[in-house]
Simulated scan of single mutants.
Amino acid sequence: MGKKKTIKRLEKEVDRLKAELDKTETSAKKKLKKVEKNAAALQDRVVELIKQRDAKRVPDEKPSSAAGGSTSATTSSTRAASSSTSTARKTAPAKKSPAKKAPQKSTPQKAAGTSVTASKTVVQLRSEAKAKGIKGYSTMNKAQLVHALS
């Protein structure tokens, strides 16, 4: 008779544990759906931001190297996906790069070809400076680029 009681008690415990497991599974599925939804929303936002960035680019500008461009997008997507996996914690905003040194203030001297160079955008001037091997072009402002290229 003791065996029957023990078996019955164990069967009740198994049933209770099954019910608890079902609850936990249902809760986990709900949380997973929420995380997937958040991840999809973040991915859509990243794609939207990339499109906005690309739309702001000047058509003459060459995109950064394939490795650099895709790495940036991949990193953003990865960051977005990883931040969505933890809905309980909030992610801190991306850290800004340290402030660059203020460029030297100089007034470029007018040269014969300056008007043509001055009508170009900073992006175009930087690409020209890069092509000519001018060092420090990435931190120069438009006036400095015009001066360096003339």
Score class of each variant (00 low, 15 high):
residue 70 S to H: 09
residue 120 K to D: 07
residue 99 A to S: 07
residue 46 V to C: 03
residue 131 A to G: 03
residue 85 T to H: 12
residue 29 K to T: 14
residue 7 I to P: 04
residue 89 R to W: 08
residue 14 V to I: 13
residue 125 L to Q: 04
residue 108 P to E: 00
residue 45 R to P: 13
residue 1 M to T: 15
residue 55 A to K: 13
residue 117 T to A: 06
residue 115 S to L: 09
residue 110 K to N: 07
residue 149 L to F: 08
residue 47 V to K: 00
residue 150 S to E: 07
residue 146 V to C: 06
residue 37 K to N: 03
residue 18 K to T: 12
residue 38 N to L: 04
residue 55 A to D: 01
residue 28 A to G: 04
residue 148 A to N: 02
residue 66 A to H: 05
residue 142 K to R: 04
residue 114 T to M: 05
residue 28 A to E: 08
residue 83 S to V: 15
residue 28 A to W: 00
residue 11 E to K: 12
residue 83 S to G: 13
residue 80 A to P: 03
residue 94 A to Q: 07
residue 66 A to M: 09
residue 141 N to Q: 03
residue 16 R to W: 03
residue 133 G to D: 05
residue 103 P to N: 00
residue 91 T to H: 06
residue 66 A to C: 12
residue 145 L to M: 08
residue 101 K to I: 14
residue 66 A to Q: 04
residue 150 S to Q: 10
residue 148 A to H: 09
residue 34 K to T: 14
residue 148 A to E: 03
residue 12 K to C: 13
residue 38 N to K: 11
residue 86 S to K: 00
residue 98 P to I: 13
residue 25 E to V: 15
residue 62 K to H: 03
residue 137 Y to L: 08
residue 115 S to K: 01
residue 2 G to H: 06
residue 42 L to H: 05
residue 74 T to A: 10
residue 87 T to S: 13
residue 54 D to T: 14
residue 83 S to Q: 08
residue 61 E to N: 06
residue 86 S to F: 10
residue 80 A to T: 12
residue 42 L to Q: 11
residue 150 S to M: 04
residue 13 E to R: 02
residue 7 I to C: 12
residue 13 E to N: 08
residue 20 E to M: 07
residue 133 G to W: 03
residue 58 V to R: 03
residue 19 A to W: 00
residue 65 S to P: 10
residue 30 K to M: 04
residue 36 E to N: 06
residue 62 K to A: 10
residue 134 I to P: 05
residue 82 S to D: 04
residue 108 P to Y: 02
residue 59 P to Q: 06
residue 106 S to I: 14
residue 10 L to R: 05
residue 30 K to G: 00
residue 133 G to H: 09
residue 66 A to T: 15
residue 121 T to E: 00
residue 28 A to M: 09
residue 69 G to H: 06
residue 10 L to Q: 09
residue 67 A to F: 15
residue 93 P to Y: 01
residue 44 D to K: 14
residue 33 K to N: 10
residue 26 T to F: 02
residue 30 K to H: 11
residue 118 A to R: 04
residue 112 A to Y: 05
residue 62 K to V: 14
residue 90 K to L: 04
residue 43 Q to H: 12
residue 87 T to W: 02
residue 128 E to P: 03
residue 101 K to Q: 01
residue 124 Q to V: 15
residue 109 Q to K: 10
residue 40 A to V: 15
residue 129 A to G: 07
residue 4 K to H: 14
residue 13 E to K: 08
residue 2 G to E: 02
residue 42 L to T: 13
residue 74 T to F: 13
residue 141 N to G: 14
residue 5 K to H: 05
residue 6 T to Q: 06
residue 77 S to C: 11
residue 24 T to L: 08
residue 85 T to K: 11
residue 83 S to T: 15
residue 96 K to P: 10
residue 146 V to Q: 02
residue 19 A to C: 02
residue 57 R to N: 02
residue 39 A to E: 01
residue 22 D to L: 06
residue 7 I to V: 15
residue 54 D to H: 09
residue 120 K to W: 08
residue 2 G to L: 13
residue 103 P to W: 05
